[in-house]
């Protein structure tokens, strides 16, 4: 059980929020000029995701630590698809929903489950040490690996995956994290295979994953 009441310094996965907001409309314009958004989603955030995808590809190198203290990178699961969600363990609502869907989706895939590695990457390294991440991930599925790292390592990973996050102080003490909430399926060659809404039900998520793995 962790108990952190110190609000960590404001962090942003992209490193430069003001620049991002300047570039976002430009990205949208480019996407419209290009004619097609690279990925079609049936959520209200399609436009935002499209803007991000139009700017630079999703994915890239990361160097984090898993629940057993092993250093892991994007190459640590050769031949497997990576199913990635960024969140934090003090997250009350959205993260458990997403992680439960990921766990149920993969656990219900039969033999194909072995081709997918679900990953939960914290955006709250100040509170989420590796023991907490291990304990938390295990609640959802033995397959799910919880990753943490230094604030810099987390910020670097988040930047590659277009994840923004910031601490929001709570009345009465403590803080919550605002964060981008999206599930990524990365193909074994490191390319984005699918973006899946984080509130999708387990069966729908499984269908999306299986379809993208074909």
């Amino acid at each position: 059980m962790t108990n952190g009441n110190q609000v960590p310094p404001a962090t942003n996965g992209s490193g430069a929020p003001s620049l991002w907001w300047v570039l976002a409309p430009l990205g949208l314009a480019l996407a419209l000029l290009g004619g097609t958004l690279p990925y079609i989603l049936s959520t209200p955030d399609t436009a935002a995701m499209g803007r991000m995808s139009a700017m630079r590809p999703v994915g890239g190198p990361f160097r984090l630590v898993d629940g057993d203290g092993r250093v892991v990178t994007e190459h640590s699961w050769p031949g497997r698809f990576l199913l990635i969600y960024f969140g934090y363990t003090h997250c009350p609502a959205s993260c458990p929903t997403a992680l439960n869907a990921m766990a149920e989706a993969v656990d219900g895939m039969g033999d194909a489950a072995g081709r997918v590695q679900p990953l939960f990457i914290t955006v709250d390294p100040a509170r989420d040490d590796r023991a907490t991440m291990k304990d938390y991930a295990a609640q959802f599925s033995p397959r799910l690996s919880g990753l943490t790292g230094t604030p810099a390592a987390v910020a670097e990973a988040a930047r590659h995956y277009h994840i923004n996050y910031r601490a929001r102080p709570q009345t009465g003490g403590g803080y919550a994290m605002d964060h981008s909430s999206i599930v990524y399926l990365m193909s074994p060659d490191g390319r984005l295979a699918a973006m899946i809404p984080a509130d999708e039900k387990p069966d729908a998520m499984r269908r999306d994953i299986v379809a993208a793995m074909r």
Partner: peptide, 16 residues
């Protein structure tokens, strides 16, 4: 502490 919270999506960010 116990309190009411609302979650919302804003510019792709999950906010509480």
């Amino acid at each position: 502490r116990a309190g009411l919270h609302e979650m919302s999506m804003s510019n792709g960010m999950m906010e509480m």
